[in-house]
């Protein structure tokens, strides 16, 4: 039963990641090709409630792999990710989206 839940979490993570990769790439392409470059970069602090080191590493990996966001630094107690985002109007919305998409499934994988 636990194994099944883990497999489901891994599959969901993969699906969400592929979807996010395409959407974010198109977003970056739209920014680059627009006649006026109009980006609003920000450094966002994302609190992650993960215990295992590999789970935090996985979260940082996914933050870095989707276009338009890169993990810059992980705090020493491994509870904060510092993420640089190419274009965002609303930092709280971005954090909520990242948690909904990735952190939730990683926590499921970890449990």
């Amino acid at each position: 039963m636990k194994l099944l839940r883990r497999i489901r979490a891994a599959l969901m993570l993969l699906a969400v990641f592929l979807w996010d990769l395409v959407v974010a790439s198109l977003g970056v392409a739209r920014i680059v090709l627009s006649p006026r470059i109009d980006t609003a970069p920000a450094i966002i602090v994302v609190p992650v409630e993960l215990e295992q080191p590999w789970a935090v590493a996985l979260a940082a990996y996914f933050a870095s792999l989707t276009p338009g966001s890169t993990c810059l630094h992980v705090s020493d107690d491994r509870h904060l990710l510092y993420v640089h985002v190419l274009h965002t109007a609303d930092a709280a919305a971005w954090t909520a989206r990242f948690k909904r998409h990735f952190v939730r499934w990683i926590r499921e994988l970890e449990a």
Partner: peptide, 8 residues
Amino acid sequence: RMHSATKA
């Protein structure tokens, strides 16, 4: 620029 170069 890095966002554009490495990931796209």
